[in-house]
């Protein structure tokens, strides 16, 4: 005797729960994410370590940042023009930024920005030691 297997209907997969789950995930990512456009400024770079002092030391231009956040070059308020003209007379000069500990981060970043705009290539920030 031959038994015939009854043909079963194909199980129907409903898409609706899948769409629901995806919709919830999408809304979750849209709501929880905050999209920030951020840049960076290098503070420590591994390749700059171990640089020996050159035999012929380059002249130094010192930019001081006061506790109130004002950047000064040779006693005058720092501008991109004043630094550019100082760099034009001393092309190999390195630019050293000496910030006061009381100044804020914005003041340092603004001074670095001005120096970069003026074309300073050899730019360094004098870092303060921690009071232990």
């Amino acid at each position: 005797m031959k038994l015939t297997r009854r043909k079963r209907n194909m199980a129907l997969i409903t898409m609706t729960p899948l769409v629901d789950v995806m919709m919830i995930l999408l809304v979750f990512f849209m709501v929880t994410s905050t999209y920030l456009d951020l840049d960076m400024m290098p503070m420590v770079q591994s390749e700059s370590e171990g640089v020996a002092a050159p035999a012929d030391p380059a002249p130094t231009l010192l930019i001081r940042i006061t506790a109130s956040g004002e950047a000064r070059l040779r006693g005058q308020p720092l501008t991109a023009q004043s630094l550019a003209s100082a760099l034009a007379s001393q092309p190999r000069a390195r630019v050293l930024i000496l910030p006061s500990g009381g100044a804020n981060v914005q003041a340092l970043v603004s001074a670095i920005e001005t120096a970069t705009k003026a074309g300073a290539e050899n730019l360094r920030v004098v870092r303060l030691e921690a009071a232990e």
Partner: peptide, 20 residues
């Protein structure tokens, strides 16, 4: 700045400051 110095002393070779 002292924190950056401490990180460099600890041996971190790549430190950046986030800006907007």
């Amino acid at each position: 700045l002292p924190l950056v110095t401490a990180l460099e002393r600890a041996g971190v070779g790549d430190v950046v400051l986030v800006i907007t």
